[in-house]
Amino acid sequence: MSAPYLHVSGINKRFGGLQALNDCSFTIREGAITCLVGPNGAGKTTIFNAITGFLRPDSGQVEFRGRRISGLSPQTIVAAGIARSFQNLRLFAEISALDNVLVGMRGQFGEEPLSALFRPLKTAHAQAARRITGREILDQVGLLAQADTLVRNLSYGEQKLLTIARLLATKADLLLLDEPASGLSAGALAALMALLRRLQSAGKTLLVVEHNTRVVQQIADDVLFLHQGHLMAQGTPEAIMADPALAEIYFGGALQDHGP
């Protein structure tokens, strides 16, 4: 049996008096869209930080394609093939959409001062090629027309799509998306879900933090239910949604007020 695609085992992380992650373990399948759900404060973003090297867990480990990645730098983890987005987007607002994508591309000639200074022609050539690739990536997420627009002038929905374009630029295979659908209009939401499906068909594996249960039902192959930093349940969207105990945790009894 081959090693699981991403295997998180026994992660603990304590912030002062708060046990943010408590023996958190799960695996995700290659090529699947896995949704990470759970109430506020369940540790969803914290586990993202632990997987991507932004946070060093107190104990436990993360393996990606059979290779241990916990303890590596964010840079090394991106190179290994995992990239993440942020709930608060963290785009570069004062540069263009295309430049945001280009910052995400790896191994660029002229990204060090000496090559930029002494090989200006090769740098310019390499850049011209990169810009073409960058436009293709923007086209994939439907932002080609906005390529030269400054990010602060893009709509919120466009900015959310751009965060995904920036992830695609890294060529990572496993994309961790932190609430990509929150705050989107119905039209933008449909476009986003279609995009996630296209990425899946193109061979990407997605781990998505999502609150909207309808979105989860439509896109998820697997659902991970996180509560108080611990994996409570893993299963198909139908199975997770049907579990009354999980609904109780998730909605905090609000459902009962509207029940029969």
Binding site: F92, L102, E112, A116, Q127
Partner: peptide, 9 residues
């Protein structure tokens, strides 16, 4: 060059 863009980012 990409270096300048990286610094701005």
């Amino acid at each position: 060059a990409p270096f300048g863009r990286l610094l701005r980012a």
